[in-house]
């Protein structure tokens, strides 16, 4: 019980710290590795919130597949370190936006999260699978994702293809 609390808060702290690392690093490789750490600690939080299936998917799909794709492209293009931050107009606008968003979200979470029902039921992965395959509400969205992935596959090949005679 007490271990649960330590693990959850530790994962939350690691997620926030490595999230900050993602945007404070100049070298994209460092950002990518910090993002992998963020995703793994978010997977710990998912598991502690009782959705083990999503936690496993987070590790396999996000930390495994998507981030490897990112690292592949970073190393393929030999992405250099950035020189200097974008501290002109748009960078400053971003920081102001961040402060406003942070204040707003603290207010929303503070007000909204108090009224939430306290539920401690863990969901088994069979429940998620049953919801995905047997619930008629999710039938068409689930089929639509297959078309989305097919379209993304074709689009990625067309965009990244080397044109002949060039």
């Amino acid at each position: 019980m007490i271990l649960d609390v330590i693990l959850f808060y530790g994962a939350a702290l690691v997620a926030l710290a490595s999230g900050l690392f993602v945007i404070s690093q100049r070298n994209p490789i460092n950002s990518a590795f910090s993002l992998i750490i963020t995703m793994c600690s978010l997977a710990v939080m998912f598991a502690m919130l009782g959705s083990g299936f999503i936690a496993v998917l987070q590790i396999v799909v996000y930390a495994g597949a998507i981030m490897v794709l990112f690292l592949f492209v970073i190393m393929l293009l030999n992405a250099k370190q950035e020189e200097g931050d974008r501290m002109g107009g748009i960078g400053r606008a971003g920081i102001i936006l961040g402060i406003v968003l942070a204040v707003q979200s603290v207010m929303v979470v503070w007000q909204g999260a108090r009224g939430l029902p306290a539920n401690h039921r863990d969901t088994a992965s069979i429940d998620v699978a049953r919801g995905l395959f047997a619930d008629p509400r999710f039938l068409y969205p689930f089929e639509a994702t297959s078309i989305l992935i097919l379209a993304a596959l074709v689009g990625a090949i067309v965009v990244a293809r080397k044109e002949k005679g060039k």
Partner: peptide, 14 residues
Amino acid sequence: AFLFVIGAVGVFVR
């Protein structure tokens, strides 16, 4: 909420 804010700031700063 904080991770979302960090991501949103990062889009502008990087």
